[in-house]
């Protein structure tokens, strides 16, 4: 699997260039022309991403979530779901690096092969940073009204968490 993953990009690049050479396209000029688009794209990316990181960093560093979770603890015991996974589930859509840091803490605390760590890994591994993707993609092309995009994304994330809680015990 790792080999396939490693060969994917080089082979893709080779196919693209060889195919274009066969079609007598000026490969060099096309590359330069395409790469030029990167600058305006990065410039458009900056403001919305800055806004999101600004907000999320203040929120995640406040420790507010930890306090709120302490509150919810009894409820979680009632439905037999370990409270410890809640921060992972909540932070995953918000921030990739924060989610990874949480996972790292959990591995250190409980060991990478404990049930909690595996459950958190599966939640993290089968979802993505919804808020970041929405901000980046819509922000770059200047969409202001995102309609139901955030709701659809977050509901799918919720589905991921529930599915993980159901599926992981079947394997471990």
């Amino acid at each position: 699997m790792k080999l396939i993953s490693n060969l994917f990009i080089p082979i893709l690049v080779l196919i693209v260039i060889l195919y274009a050479a066969k079609k007598k396209v000026n490969v060099y000029d096309s590359f330069v022309e395409g790469a030029k688009e990167g600058l305006p794209m990065a410039l458009n990316m900056f403001p919305p991403l800055l806004a999101m990181i600004f907000g999320i960093n203040i929120f995640t560093s406040s420790g507010l979530i930890d306090d709120v979770f302490g509150f919810l603890k009894p409820l979680f015991y009632m439905i037999h779901v370990p409270l410890e996974i809640l921060p992972v589930a909540v932070m995953r859509p918000l921030s990739g690096s924060f989610g990874l840091a949480l996972l790292n803490d959990m591995y250190e605390l409980y060991g990478p092969d404990s049930f909690l760590s595996i459950l958190s890994s599966v939640i993290q591994g089968s979802s993505d940073t919804t808020l970041y993707i929405i901000t980046l993609y819509f922000g770059t092309i200047g969409i202001k009204k995102i309609k139901y995009a955030l709701w659809a994304g977050l509901l799918a994330d919720l589905a991921t968490v529930i599915l993980s809680i159901i599926i992981v015990p079947l394997f471990f």
Binding site: V16, V25, V27, S30, G38, A42, L50, I53, N57
Partner: peptide
């Protein structure tokens, strides 16, 4: 937060430019 964002964009940008170049070749051909 400004620096964090800039770092992130600096991380994305080089590869972005390369892929946009490669993709433009794929488009032209």
């Amino acid at each position: 937060s400004g620096k964090t964002t800039l770092d992130l964009i600096l991380q994305i940008f080089p590869l972005l430019a390369i892929w946009l170049g490669i993709m433009n070749i794929a488009k032209k051909s």
